[in-house]
């Protein structure tokens, strides 16, 4: 899919970035993961399904989903694992170190710690917000 002739736009033809864009599901739109490549002027849908936060740890991409999943992809954007959890309403995800990712659990106003190896949630509520 062409990106509106940006490669011939005198003000934007310098672009060579490649972007990953996550999209949550909404109504009839199932959401997904998109790759925009300004160098090749292409847009590709890599995955269908609700996607929220993303973080990279070494050669893995971890994606949270607001339907309570963590999706693990390899460098070819192939899904190598989907892990389901209870109702936590995952939003953002960030790398704490190469062994642990932090995930925002909006349903409980907590931030959970998950091991990257097996995506087990560590401890109780490591970071809990209160008012």
């Amino acid at each position: 899919m062409l990106l509106y002739d940006l490669e011939n736009d005198q003000d934007f033809q310098y672009l060579t970035s490649r972007l990953l864009v996550s999209s949550p599901a909404s109504g009839s739109d199932q959401g997904g993961l998109f790759l925009i490549d300004f160098k090749t002027n292409t847009l590709e849908k890599l995955y269908s399904g609700s996607c929220s936060g993303m973080t990279r740890v070494n050669d893995r991409l971890y994606i949270t989903s607001d339907d309570n999943q963590i999706i693990t992809m390899d460098q070819r954007f192939q899904v190598i694992r989907k892990t389901n959890y209870g109702k936590l309403d995952f939003h953002g995800i960030a790398t704490f170190n190469e062994h642990v990712v932090l995930i925002v659990e909006t349903a409980t106003n907590t931030i959970g710690c998950y091991e990257t190896d097996n995506l087990t949630r560590i401890g109780g509520d490591p970071l809990r917000f209160f008012r």
Binding site: L20, G27, C51, S52
Partner: peptide, 8 residues
């Protein structure tokens, strides 16, 4: 898609 959450 209707929604964007994050861009890397």
């Amino acid at each position: 898609a209707q929604q964007v959450y994050q861009i890397l």
